[in-house]
Amino acid sequence: MAKSISQEFVKGLWDEIPPFRLVLGLCPALAVTTTMKNGVGMGLATTFVLVCSNLLVSLMRNIIPSKVRIACFIIIIATFVIVTELVMQAYAYTLFQNLGIFIPLIVVNCVVLGRSEAFASKNSVLPSLADGMGIGLGFTIALGLLGAVRELIGNGTITVINEIQVFGPSFEPFEFMVAPPGAFVALGLMLCIMNIIGKK
């Protein structure tokens, strides 16, 4: 069971990448990925909460009584979510408006609570940090990728910082992809591609 810290970090990028391998945290993955920028922004906000809550949970794992641990985890996570919310409102207001209701909803994102419960409450500080960063980065990459695919097909653009036209003016956008049904289909097909590549 003694894995090195780098292994804990790397597993979040492929073996346990949410929301593909761990089917958790679907709601933000589907809802905010209409552009690449939103997807990455959501991913980074979640990563911040994930790393901080993993750190704190792992520091306090011997103090928290096991009967009320879920409630304690939720309070820790909620605190960091409020911090994220206020910081984003102050420094990244347009992103804050685009993500809207999904920032306070990080608190009920199963990825964050799942990592606290399954990993940070049983492991010491450094592996927990690595785990949080790995899973968070994996989530960010997945959301960014999904956002990029949907935006590229549905709108013909890629937004990194500014909008970039990829296909030129004659491209007829396939608007289905940025509409809600497209989110489900895009994620389903990406999962299918992941299954083909990562056959075990």
Partner: peptide, 22 residues
């Protein structure tokens, strides 16, 4: 089809269902 099994096909189905609500 094998790669589409389980969650993957469920998501595509949800997409079609979402289209009807659309």
């Amino acid at each position: 089809p094998k790669p589409l099994e389980d969650t993957s096909i469920a998501l595509v189905t949800a997409g079609v269902l979402s289209l009807t609500f659309f």
